[in-house]
């Protein structure tokens, strides 16, 4: 109290701050927090004169029947009877309101999200200008995240135009908070955007914070720094080229050549699952290409692959290694009397 210069000064400051936010307020003061809440709900009346509705007890029907309508009347009732009729919880709440029992209240935490709007001083229609403005908001976001030891997995930038608005979503591979990194990703997104009309204001929103601990950068190019560099590279490539543009390869236990590999997230491959097949080409064609028989000189084979009857895409092919007239080595098969090129031994 002394710190704020007395109760009146404190209330005045609160009132000023709340008025600035244009909120409708009702003030009430009481020795205990719960009583203050009740009094403010009851329009600032004295505790004894408050109607029972402000307390939020669920025994309203019972109290109405016995002719009790204010907190003061309730307090005059014998405690044992009240406890029997309405339970101990009601008595505990009353004690907390009177200040005879301590109450542990949860501290207010700001919501884990960020939203900020920036009016642009002039209409902007090019990506560089937008990025420059967005950087100011990203720095604010970084400050909030740093205070909460958190990072974001994605954010959205809304470009408010005179008639419409465009939403730019940026996703990250791992939580991050540095404004520089977020800005670089945003630049790739903005570069692919074509704006129909100039932007008047921008709004940056981010939620879904996840904990992020500050990491110290290695003095030398260590493995950790390299992994981080890799993640950032993957993020940038996917931001511009699309999420499917970067993938890893994995083997899959299936004899059919087109099913024996999979597109996976880069880095997901367990070499223990791999069974050594026969000779396989390094290039597989997207679709087998019909070839003429007189162009081929068969060098090795056949290797019969007959499989897949269970999933409706059954294959029954004889594979050969063949040299073409231009001396390239191909992996060809014969099916239903026709020859097809399926891969190249590049």
């Amino acid at each position: 109290m002394r710190l704020f210069g007395g109760l009146e000064r404190l209330l005045e400051r609160l009132r000023e701050g709340l008025d600035a936010m244009e909120l409708t307020t009702q003030f009430a003061v009481a020795p205990a927090a719960r009583a203050a809440i009740w009094r403010s709900r009851g329009g600032g009346a004295r505790l004894e004169e408050l109607p029972l509705e402000v307390t939020g007890f669920d025994c309203g029907e019972f109290f109405r029947n016995i002719g009790i309508s204010t907190v003061g009347e309730l307090l005059k009732l014998p405690r044992e009877g009240l406890a029997r009729r309405c339970g101990q919880a009601l008595l505990d709440d009353l004690d907390r309101a009177l200040g005879t029992a301590p109450e542990a209240r949860e501290y207010f935490l700001p919501p884990p999200r960020f939203a900020a709007k920036l009016e642009l001083p002039a209409e902007v229609s090019h990506a560089d200008g937008l990025l420059f403005a967005a950087r100011r908001l990203l720095v604010q976001l970084e400050g909030l995240l740093a205070a909460r030891h958190a990072g974001v997995r994605g954010f959205t930038l809304t470009l408010l135009q005179s008639e419409a608005s465009t939403v730019v979503e940026v996703q990250l591979a791992s939580p991050a908070r540095e404004a520089g990194r977020l800005g670089r990703l945003l630049r790739e997104k903005l570069a692919t955007l074509s704006l129909s009309c100039p932007v008047e204001a921008i709004r940056l929103e981010a939620g879904d914070f996840s904990p992020l601990h500050a990491r110290t950068a290695g003095m030398f190019g260590d493995a950790l720094a390299e992994d981080e560099g890799w993640e950032r590279l993957a993020e940038r490539l996917q931001a511009r080229l699309g999420p499917d543009a970067l993938y890893g390869l994995a083997t899959h236990p299936d004899h059919r050549p087109e099913y024996s590999w999979r597109r996976v997230e880069a880095g997901e491959w367990d070499p223990r699952e791999f069974r050594h097949p026969g000779p396989r080409p390094l290039w597989l064609l997207q679709a087998p290409r019909p070839t003429r028989e007189d162009d081929l000189q068969l060098l090795a084979g056949p290797e019969r692959i007959e499989c897949g009857w269970w999933d409706g895409d059954d294959a029954r092919r004889d594979y050969f290694i063949a040299r073409f007239s231009d001396s390239s080595l191909g992996w060809v098969y014969r099916e239903a009397g026709a020859w097809f090129l399926h891969g190249l031994f590049a």
């Binding site: 080229l241 890893g248 994995a250 083997t251 491959w269 290039w283």
Partner: peptide, 30 residues
């Protein structure tokens, strides 16, 4: 790459596929 890099052949040649990534870029500039 102009065709599909074939994982079984690469693995058979001793390439650790977990360390290999393919990037598709539609245009020359990309």
């Amino acid at each position: 790459p102009p065709h599909l890099p074939y994982a079984p052949a690469l693995a058979a040649a001793g390439v650790d596929l977990a360390r290999l990534a393919v990037v598709r870029a539609p245009g020359r500039r990309d």
